[in-house]
């Protein structure tokens, strides 16, 4: 930095100080109603004394999710925005390839009280829909819990079982394999077709692919975000089809191309 640069830097520093003084003055004038913003104190992974969560390196945990206490999250799982997995009184284990979608809550019942021990166990490739509430229950592999469903204590959803959206499953219910239960309280509705069973496993893999994209985006440092913002602005008004019509080949930078796994598998087959 030359002498001029140093001088400009110093002047900039003075002006910033003046600005901060003005800011403080404004805050003082606003008095008690003023709220000073603070750094985010939200903890994505938090331990309760010695119970620390164990999250696999390939799992996606959204920064706004909170995983508290004795929680194990397996490979390729995804915990989406605003989820709460609170394993403070007992353990929660989430298998591999499972997705727990936005704003869901997983909690456990009190441990070792009158001989009842109810950890929450979620198996592999399970899809738990948005805003579901899972309380002290067992969800086996390849099961499906629909949007807004509530599973109370001691519920067991067997392999390939399905809980329809918006249903409330009462205490100690067992949802047998390959059945759909729904309503409030949940009742047997019908058998699952083979097509739907394949759809459930498909949706789990789709979600784990999608999670990778979100994980990459959410873990970016500040410089990278700014850089991509500029890139996006620069390439925003360039359309591939339009360019090919003109016979121009322009490269879109790899940073702002989405990986294939976010696209519709059916569309890409066509």
């Amino acid at each position: 930095m030359g002498t001029l640069g140093r001088a400009v830097y110093t002047v900039g520093f003075w002006i910033r100080e003046t600005g901060q003084a003005l800011d403080r003055l404004g805050c003082r004038l606003q008095g008690n109603y003023y709220f000073q913003e603070q750094l985010s104190r939200h903890r994505t992974l938090m331990n309760i004394f010695d119970k620390a969560p164990a999250v696999d390196k390939d799992a996606f945990v959204a920064p706004s999710a909170s995983i508290i206490g004795d929680v194990q999250v397996g490979r390729g799982s995804s915990i989406w925005y605003g989820c709460v997995l609170r394993g403070d009184v007992n353990s929660i284990s989430v298998g591999s390839g499972t997705n727990i979608q936005d704003n869901s809550l997983v909690h456990v019942a009190k441990s070792n009280l009158s001989g009842k021990v109810l950890p929450t166990i979620i198996g592999d490739n399970v899809t738990v829909g948005h805003s579901a509430v899972l309380h002290g229950c067992t969800v086996e592999d390849d099961a499906f819990v629909g949007m807004g469903a509530t599973l109370l204590d001691g519920v067991v959803v067997e392999r390939h079982g399905m809980v329809a959206a918006g249903s409330l499953v009462r205490q100690n219910t067992r949802i047998p394999s390959g059945e759909v239960w729904g309503g409030n309280p949940a009742k047997f509705l019908r058998k699952l077709t083979d097509e739907e069973i394949t759809f459930i496993s498909q949706s789990a893999t789709n979600y784990s692919n999608l999670a990778q994209v979100h994980a990459a985006e959410n873990s970016k440092p500040f410089d990278e975000i700014e850089f991509e913002k500029v890139l996006r602005k620069k390439f925003a008004h360039r359309d591939e089809e339009y360019d090919s019509m003109l016979g121009v080949v322009r490269e879109t930078p790899p940073e702002i191309i989405l990986p294939d796994n976010i696209k519709d598998p059916k569309a890409s087959q066509k």
Partner: peptide
């Protein structure tokens, strides 16, 4: 894996373009 991101959750998350 970060246990505490000082930035919190970003409000706007761009994906690709």
């Amino acid at each position: 894996r970060v246990k505490w991101d000082y930035r919190g959750q970003r409000q706007i998350i761009p994906l690709g373009q």
